[in-house]
Write a protein that binds this DNA or RNA. Sequence first.
DNA 1: CTGTGTGAAATTTTTCACAGCG
DNA 2: CGCTGTGAAAAATTTCACACAG
Lengths: 259, 259
Amino acid sequence: MRRAREEQRTCVGPHLDTSSIEALEHTPVTPPTPRPRERGIPEATVARLPVYLRALQALNASGTPTISSEGLATAAGVNSAKLRKDLSYLGSYGTRGVGYDVEYLIYQISRELGLTKDWTVAIVGIGNLGRALANYGGFGTRGFRIAALLDADTAVVGREVAGLSVRHIDTLEEAVKMEKVSIGVIATPAAAAQGVCDRFVEAGVTSVLNFAPVVLNVPPGVDVRKVDLSIELQILAFHEQRKNGGHGRPGWIEAAEGL
Amino acid sequence: MRRAREEQRTCVGPHLDTSSIEALEHTPVTPPTPRPRERGIPEATVARLPVYLRALQALNASGTPTISSEGLATAAGVNSAKLRKDLSYLGSYGTRGVGYDVEYLIYQISRELGLTKDWTVAIVGIGNLGRALANYGGFGTRGFRIAALLDADTAVVGREVAGLSVRHIDTLEEAVKMEKVSIGVIATPAAAAQGVCDRFVEAGVTSVLNFAPVVLNVPPGVDVRKVDLSIELQILAFHEQRKNGGHGRPGWIEAAEGL
DNA sequence: CTGTGTGAAATTTTTCACAGCG
DNA sequence: CGCTGTGAAAAATTTCACACAG
């Protein structure tokens, strides 16, 4: 019922890039396979489920047994109408006049997101960012297992990070197969990202989380999500500019008009 | 003309959270000031401008003088109709029958995003992630200047990171005022994030980029953007689950030739 | 009575498709 | 002629508002 259009290749959510700069001179890259995705949940809702999940886990940790849509919405930073609509896509898991059972809803959302399975992750690029990711304990609290860390720098290879020994990038294919990696994380410099991505894809990985500031080019069927620090900053800058005509905090009388 | 509704507090873009879990038991937090934002450019477009900008900079670096909407769209991973529509909000900067002048368009987008001004950034939480951010040279290539690094850990305070001496968190207010910080970046553990945010806001910062896995509660007029690693992973997991019923790679290793 | 679940309305975003400029 | 710029149509998302279940 929803989603029948094609959006470039197979991408999901906001900020998902796919093509590479070099592809520019070549093929129009108009993929013939939109992959309809007939199943129900809207993308916008999927993107919020993890937020609800985290709020619920906090609630659960603090011993709250049930929560109203209003309360959960506040905790998640959305309005209650949106929350109820989102949850309604999963099913009717609330109790009218009462609210939602926190634990039950945690279970349902986790199941929907596929977190009852264990996803194996490989991180390529063990610089500061890669290390931060590797050490990020709460990688979904559960559901994700970091199985391999890889880097091209021989000074890093062999070093122990987050309890794992960093492998050489040359063993990527082997690592993917041995560990059954399903999600590849790219935390390399921009120049290396596409190459790493290609190798991930070649090895059979169909989900990639990209931290490098490049648009990755992937074949249909592969999902790429991108996290881009400078893009987020630029968006903030745009709004900041709109708020007070220039730099500084409000209250700063910076005659920075024009330029 | 566009945007008249209110969406929680003053937030921008996807994944922007605001309230905190504790607020849950208290006030409905319904701000009376929606801040209309009558000015033109759609939020969805703003979020893509940085992507176009980066693609253009790559083009420029490779010596390409002009580019068609088709070419730029491919480089940016969107379709050309969307690209043209987006650019049309900025003005008519293209030449029919030809395309866009790369340098000129770079200038126009930069100006629109407010990158011709310099934004001053302070990062709180100098763990692996904070260090990664501090060292991330291409913080927008330009437009952003990291002016202060702060941490609560006395073992880190005083250490030099990315050419800056890490200050103690107690000097946050002072640092914000002295350096005229306009964007605060939070890379602390979840538990500390709201407190740091409150101090940023109190000190006059109205734009916050949050890497901590919590929903921040801010007053109206303050923009919060959130980058959340585990949320991105969970979204990928959802789609991965949809693709092949379980873990592992799909059997159809129909890789792309690439290079 | 309270608060969920939901059709329907409103808004935003994307896509189409084509007039017309260079 | 090719490619931009853009009204108009289509699709997706958000919000409203209320019937009704517990």
